[in-house]
Amino acid sequence: MSLATDAHTESQTKTGPHSSIHHTPPEDHTHQADKKSIPDTGWRGSPPIPSSDGGDSEKDWMSKPPYNWSPARGPDGEELFKTKYESSCWCGAVRFAFAGDPFDAKHCHCRQCQRLHGAPFQWAAIFPKTSVRILQDNSGALHCFSTTTKQAGHHVPCKVSCDICRAPLFDEGKRMVLAYPSGFKFPPIKARLNFQPSCHIFYGHRVMEVCDGIPKWRGHKNDSELMQEMSDVVGIMPRCKGYDDKPHA
């Protein structure tokens, strides 16, 4: 799953001294998100999934998921939205609550993620929009940037960040939110296991090799070929400095 809108060209791979190092493909490549139903967290407004058509047609988007909305209550009077995680920007001006665990998580190596995050790849955990709500927006610090229009503003898909410290928070897609785990305040360490990526996508665009044993897709998950973890692709950062082009035992 990716919010990238630019074209992804194919990268060429050739065999080399590390080509024998393979990841282990899973037996079932079906998207985890596609196999799970969206939990009822108390959204009773319209549409069922806000901004699912994309663009800027939702004029009252700020009062709908994943932003400033009020969940319904169950028969016992308690809110159906049960906060399990919280995230915030670096300065704390913007905070979000998340109900339940992510459907899936991934590392994206597309050029767009590399440039917008200033990092070799993006780490994102996928939540339904209705499992996310804003807790705090001091001084109107919430900032949206459209990767389609290349302008500031809520035009889905868009990237959400803090306008004060500039820390990224999540990507809003048409159906899901791709949240950045580095901004989460985790409870006990075991909870982080739910945020571990199931795959790498757009690995054909990588600028460094990652030997973690999980599937590496050349492009989108389930819609491209699986790749080896290491190869002799020209321009790819080697495993360590001082690499001498000789096979390692």
Score class of each variant (00 low, 15 high):
residue 92 G to M: 02
residue 156 V to I: 15
residue 95 R to V: 07
residue 188 P to F: 11
residue 68 N to C: 12
residue 77 G to N: 03
residue 147 T to N: 11
residue 190 K to S: 05
residue 97 A to H: 08
residue 176 M to A: 06
residue 167 A to Y: 10
residue 112 Q to P: 02
residue 123 W to C: 05
residue 84 K to F: 11
residue 101 D to M: 02
residue 138 N to H: 08
residue 140 G to Y: 09
residue 87 S to Y: 02
residue 136 Q to E: 13
residue 186 F to E: 06
residue 97 A to V: 03
residue 111 R to N: 07
residue 85 Y to I: 02
residue 60 D to K: 10
residue 133 R to E: 10
residue 181 P to I: 06
residue 96 F to S: 11
residue 162 C to F: 13
residue 137 D to R: 01
residue 185 K to D: 04
residue 81 F to R: 05
residue 83 T to N: 07
residue 89 C to D: 10
residue 162 C to T: 11
residue 175 R to I: 05
residue 128 P to Y: 03
residue 94 V to L: 06
residue 63 S to Y: 06
residue 158 C to R: 01
residue 80 L to Q: 10
residue 147 T to C: 04
residue 128 P to T: 12
residue 83 T to M: 07
residue 83 T to R: 11
residue 67 Y to W: 14
residue 63 S to R: 07
residue 79 E to D: 14
residue 98 F to M: 00
residue 69 W to E: 08
residue 129 K to C: 13
residue 60 D to A: 06
residue 106 K to H: 05
residue 115 R to P: 01
residue 100 G to Q: 00
residue 116 L to R: 07
residue 134 I to Q: 10
residue 62 M to A: 14
residue 134 I to W: 00
residue 63 S to F: 09
residue 132 V to H: 12
residue 118 G to A: 11
residue 92 G to H: 09
residue 64 K to M: 05
residue 185 K to R: 08
residue 109 H to R: 06
residue 162 C to A: 12
residue 152 A to F: 15
residue 147 T to I: 14
residue 153 G to I: 12
residue 99 A to R: 10
residue 170 F to K: 12
residue 86 E to D: 11
residue 107 H to D: 00
residue 174 K to T: 15
residue 77 G to P: 08
residue 81 F to M: 05
residue 150 K to E: 13
residue 79 E to K: 09
residue 142 L to F: 13
residue 146 S to G: 05
residue 136 Q to F: 00
residue 170 F to S: 12
residue 103 F to L: 14
residue 113 C to V: 02
residue 153 G to Q: 14
residue 135 L to C: 07
residue 168 P to I: 08
residue 98 F to H: 12
residue 138 N to F: 05
residue 85 Y to Q: 01
residue 107 H to V: 00
residue 162 C to W: 15
residue 182 S to H: 05
residue 98 F to I: 01
residue 91 C to F: 02
residue 123 W to P: 00
residue 59 K to I: 12
residue 102 P to D: 09
residue 160 V to F: 04
residue 63 S to L: 07
residue 83 T to S: 14
residue 177 V to M: 01
residue 137 D to T: 06
residue 80 L to V: 04
residue 148 T to D: 07
residue 147 T to S: 14
residue 180 Y to I: 13
residue 133 R to C: 09
residue 146 S to K: 04
residue 173 G to M: 06
residue 119 A to Y: 03
residue 94 V to T: 11
residue 88 S to R: 10
residue 65 P to S: 03
residue 92 G to D: 04
residue 167 A to N: 09
residue 85 Y to D: 07
residue 179 A to F: 00
residue 176 M to E: 12
residue 128 P to F: 04
residue 150 K to T: 13
residue 100 G to N: 07
residue 190 K to N: 08
residue 114 Q to V: 02
residue 111 R to E: 15
residue 141 A to R: 11
residue 161 S to L: 04
residue 95 R to W: 00
residue 173 G to Y: 05
residue 135 L to V: 11
residue 94 V to E: 08
residue 133 R to P: 11
residue 119 A to P: 00
residue 65 P to C: 02
residue 161 S to I: 02
residue 81 F to P: 04
residue 156 V to F: 11
residue 175 R to T: 09
residue 130 T to G: 08
residue 163 D to M: 03
residue 160 V to Q: 13
residue 145 F to W: 11
residue 180 Y to T: 07
